[in-house]
Write a protein that binds this DNA or RNA. Structure first.
Lengths: 194, 194, 194, 194
DNA sequence: CACTAATCGAGACGGTACGTCTCGTCTTCGC
DNA sequence: GCGAAGACGAGACGTACCGTCTCGATTAGTG
């Protein structure tokens, strides 16, 4: 029964093949069309070998995705807040629009009905980035660059919200070149400045 | 084969029972757990009667949802833009946090892998609301209340993006009382005003 | 509820179209493939019109078949028992091997799981023929032509049994030219006569 | 798609449960009332496990029946042809009148509209028995016990035909005690012997 | 000749079973 | 004991017909 496997005996070859197959299928057919069975077949691996090490297909694809989108996690700090934010938004948008975007989109969708995946997504992806940007923004608040009466976590949501809105709802295309304008608009607001 | 049924002979009773059953199951178990079979069983209806009038379970739930979220669609116009926006955001947030939110969440998730549903969602839900708010905002632009150099469609996304971000990603809870602050922040921007 | 329709108002046109359609479909696709729905469609008739006048598809096909196989029911009496029997067997075999055979075969099959159809088949088809031949055979018994110690009903079964055996089980083809030999064999027996 | 399963990995437990369930349902409700779904449910088995190993419900019931009617297949040879035939006929009649008769009847009926089942029935059931009896009868012919001018296959049909006729058409009951009389009548013929 | 039934064509309805698909677990080997 | 292979129990899918029902629109025979 629910025995826990011994990680020392784990086959690195199988793990690689599984993650690679998952990404290939996910980028080719879309997240929802990927099945554990298909991953196993393409990886030349038994289904059980997948279920032994991952609880669900979402976990496989999440791990595969994490492996390949490390760079997008890096928060540069050149001292120029707006420029750094712009670079970050461009990277995120690039990721969403790229091959892996299909997988990311599927994971976000899946998380809507899988609390456990949702938690993992937050813990491993959103919360760390949020925290790092919150720190940056709080520095800017302290420097008088940003308002002190808006929670920094809210600021992050104001900046990233519109990006994900376009991505998930698709009323208008998501373009990396919009990043800087977006930041400017959030920073300065929609009302005319005197 | 693919014969088209005659809407004149359609049973209003069956339609009602199906939509009601769909909502009950959707709010109780969550969108993903709903099956056409279960809807039919609970509605006391043959499966074929569902497939005769709707192509997919998503179509059933979308119609059911549309029926019951009429009020949230109303764009109020009291002359006070910020107040009207606040009222609308509160309503949307109320919908998302309410019973029907579970269904709405599932539809949005499903739309990520079903282009046809995505299109329908945009056509029947997002685009109309977007258009109405765009008009309101353009009036405000013309009145000098809002910047003329930001596309009004973008403005709508800046306002609603953060709401859906919180809703779908869940890093922080979505509270109707945040509506007014959100609008103020978007309107005035994150930089201190002199 | 179960109201009984008024035969005076019955549409002769519909009746004809239904019986014709039933035979066409039955001879073309085989009894089992015929559906009430298909009969109705091909006859240009509502399903209810069929169910109003016949309880089951088997009843429709039985009536259609009876209509068209009148001649095979005729028991000739030329005085020559063996010759008359031969003529009858030839006719029966001709019917079974003909277009209508497919329907007849299906009815016999269906009767195996439908006691009511089985009864009707016996009452309207087998028993009358059986009775008439029993009478003929009893005359022959009285004339000393046939053994008196074999029940005449059994004699009929000995004669027709092998025909239906071949027909339903199909180990060897059923040929009208075998009729006379068959009769001779049953009459004279398998043991050599001195 | 139509992959062929590996018989080495077949579950003996499932096979047993399926065949047992099929017989139970068949003898209780009759062949026509048995459904693959019901067999699966009663056997505690997935439907796919049935469809993996048998193409149709008829194949399941045929296999189940074959398994349990081994003895009725035995052709005894005590040297006394008539006695051996009598024993065989009694056995066949016993089978037909017994619990399994309901299944056998259904299979024969089904075979009328399923050429593939008909072939299987002939190949696995009728032809072997026919062949063995033909051999016996040919020996008797060579010994001068039976006429040389009647094909032995025909002789078998003359003997078994009346049995199946009564069984399938039901104009008179089928009784094991009729076996010997039947054989005597076929052997000696219906005409009085001098 | 209008009236008034009941039948008619049409087809939607509540059901049942079909045969297929995919899920996550269990079983069987070979290494 | 892991890994490849794949059979297994479970159960939803979307389709085909069943036999019943509800519609107007003919179509009789009756007053």
């Amino acid at each position: 029964m629910g025995r826990t496997p011994n990680p020392d005996l784990r086959s690195a070859r199988a793990r690689r093949a599984i993650l690679d197959a998952a990404v290939e299928l996910g980028t080719r057919d879309g997240y929802a069309q990927v099945t554990v069975e298909a991953i196993a077949a393409r990886a030349g691996v038994g289904k059980q070998t997948i279920y032994r090490w991952w609880p669900r297909k979402s976990a496989v694809l999440l791990e595969a995705l994490n492996e390949r989108s490390g760079p997008a996690a890096e928060v540069p700090d050149t001292g120029d807040l707006a420029a750094d934010l712009g670079r970050q938004l461009r990277m995120v948008i690039g990721l969403l629009n790229g091959d892996l975007g299909l997988i990311w989109r599927g994971l976000l969708a899946d998380a809507q009905s899988d609390a456990c995946l949702a938690q993992e997504l937050r813990d491993n992806f959103f919360t760390p980035r949020l925290r790092r940007w919150r720190d940056r923004l709080e520095t800017a608040v302290a420097a008088g660059e940003l308002r002190a009466d808006v929670p920094s976590a809210t600021m992050v949501e104001l900046l990233f919200g519109p990006v994900y809105y376009r991505y998930l709802i698709g009323t208008s295309p998501l373009d990396a070149d919009d990043a800087e304008a977006l930041i400017e608009q959030i920073f300065n607001g929609l009302r005319p400045r005197p």
